[in-house]
Amino acid sequence: MSDGPRPRAGRAGWRDQLPRICWLTLVWVLLWGTFTVQTIVGGVLVALAVTRLFPMPPATDPIPVRPLRVLGLVGFLVYDLVVSTVGVSWQVLRYGPRARGTILEVPLYSSSDRVATLLASAVTLSPGTAVLHFAADQGVWYAYSLGPRDEADVERTRRQVLDVQRRVLAAFGTPEEQARAAAGEGER
């Protein structure tokens, strides 16, 4: 098995590997905390060794990345982290043992595994919500949310979760996926 994919990964190598090498170098430099020639060169060497020792399969489905939308997504997640932490704290203090939750079925508008991973991380990072299960073959995923107490709350939560998905697709989705997400939201 190691005979087959290795040479192909090697040839596809440089362009695919470059982001990983930059990222690993950055981590190395941050670990040392000093921006000197030694740490940067050392970081590049370590990154090269790591990418050589643990090769990743070449990316088959390039996903579009829109830097401004990514920044917007990061800003939203930070804002959401603060707001939702207050929300979760309120649930804890106000309801405690009588707090309720809900598990929602949400349509999945992306066919890319990597976008789904980003989506799961974004939703799960937000306090009070977590992704429980992806059923990509059925085009749905399931999110848990802490807090909803009646149907109106449930529908509001559903809109919030769909909003996160829309933002992730705005940053990383193809135009078709964004159109499907917009159409899906229009139905509701």
Partner: peptide, 15 residues
Amino acid sequence: RLPSMLSRLQAATKP
């Protein structure tokens, strides 16, 4: 204080 595994997990990780 929270009642279930899932809700406790929220409190344990997010704040």
